[in-house]
Design a binder for these strands. Sequence first.
RNA 1: GAUCCGUUAGCUCAGCAGGUAGAGCAUCUGCCUUUUAAGCAGAGGGUCCGGAGUUCGAGCCUCCGACGGAUCACCA
Length: 572
Amino acid sequence: MQLSEQEIVRREALKELRKLGINPYPPEMFEVSAYAKEVLEQFPGDNTLFQEVSMAGRIMNRRVMGAASFAEIMDDTGRIQLYFKRDDICPGEDKTMYNTVFKRLLDIGDFIGIKGFAFITKMGEITIHVTQYKVLAKSLRPLPIVKEKDGKVYDAFTDPDQRYRQRYVDLIVNDHVKKTFVQRAQIIQSMRNFLSAKGYLEVETPILQPIPGGAAARPFITHHNALNMPLYLRIANELYLKRLIVGGYEGVFEFAKDFRNEGMDRFHNPEFTQMEMYVAYKDYFWMMETTEQMIEKIVIDLYGTTKIKVGENEIDFKAPFKRQTILGAIEEFTGFNLTHKSEEEIRAVAKKLNIETDPSMGKGKLIDEIFGEKCEGNYIQPTFIMDYPVEMSPLCKRHRKNEELTERFELMVNGKELANAYTELNDPIDQRARFKEQLQLLEKGDDEAMFIDYDFLRAIEYGMPPTSGMGIGIDRLVMLLTNQPSIQEVLFFPQMKPEQKAKPITADDFIKIGVSKIWAEHIMAAGFASPDSLKESKATAIQQKLNGYRKKNKLNIPAIQIDEIIKWLEED
RNA sequence: GAUCCGUUAGCUCAGCAGGUAGAGCAUCUGCCUUUUAAGCAGAGGGUCCGGAGUUCGAGCCUCCGACGGAUCACCA
């Protein structure tokens, strides 16, 4: 392993600590009696507090001034300044613990435990005067040094790639990142409390599913060896939760990790979290009220107000939210009324609006496209869009007043879909027919259409009470409520391309696939950057390129024959 | 997948008509007992993303590739 100078210095310090009889990674626990935040909050009010404290944390800053030093340690609650004075740390003749260990062998990034008392410096900063300290863990890599003065941050650690790949470093040096994830936990906690208080049961359902149902999305597929069958990572848990409603629970919910094998961008990660809930004897009007109350409560729990700033916009989550039908929305923003229109008529409208269509799109998908293109972005304040066409909602009950529509709503906030809910379809005959329609879409080429889950049909044939269900994207909710521009900022470990050290490709790599030595030396210069790029080319094209290169550079080697190239391409 | 932009010291970044690399912080050495982006004096540290080409000479120009970002496309 290639070590930088600073890493070598730290490893040397580690050895020296051991030589001095100090274990840089001691096994025993270190008793902590106070945290940075408590001291900073309480000491100014009562100077008798914290006169014998024991604290632990990571050294984040050091200012050595000869026989005295200031340092900052960071614990889970924040940072606090420490004051080290040589003759207090080392009352006797032996000054090693200060001169050698503290000043030379400890570094920014190391964990220490300290004992001491709180006081306030001449500069007015609350500080712990250290009387004893102990090395708890030595750090072997230098941290990025982020400094701050008057609210201005210097040398901030901001490169997204590094931050996501090494989130631990991001969390160490970027306080606001740590805070975002605390808020994420608070949001989930608040939601859980809301649902539990209503008496609904928090449940867990399979992530590995034989049939990936409950949503329209491409699944990840895997294989179970013992059963010798494919299994899918769930794209939704809806069909399982409804089985539980059939089973007799009145209300169930699950914070579920779902997996969708689709594109990645700042709104999509292959795995993401949704909360889905189902409650018996309710309809989607009730669910709208419940949803707006739940979100209003979460926002108040988090901020103490319903109004928050998201990007440029101020959003008010005060219930009730506005309501609008999807066809009404389309009419409002495009002027076209699609009520009772046929697939062909809608396709024609889409064309007029310059929306790309393809033959695999059914009526529902077309309407969805038009809405997504022309309307969705306009809904900044929380708005329920309701009454979707039946074709795009195969699990949703038909509208009580219009057979072509369903009792469905989506909640739009800040121009994005946040939640999705139905009066659930509990008519088993209709459900079977709707699955069949999906099958036809599948055959038409829509690779997101749903599979038929016969066991689910069997379940609701036993009878499912009228039920309303709702799913809400937790990651998107957290993005919204913490004002983060990308999903990667609210996931600790967003999916990334594997980190690979770009191993330089050399002539040897070509020799390995059978290229003769004389040609291996020239093949990269001739335009083939890697064995892979060679293998993707046609033998004749390779021959032309190589011989062209030979001629141009007047190489004193025989012209390459096509047979030899064919042999390279066959090698594995 | 497309287009544009980027990749230089541990971190943040500079660099020029193409002439063998700089700053601040961090690190190391010395000084300094209440400092705070501590200070002062000195030192070390780089396959300038990889490869090829043009050139007497490339961090800089050209081509190929890797990785990343932004925008768009795809996407409940």
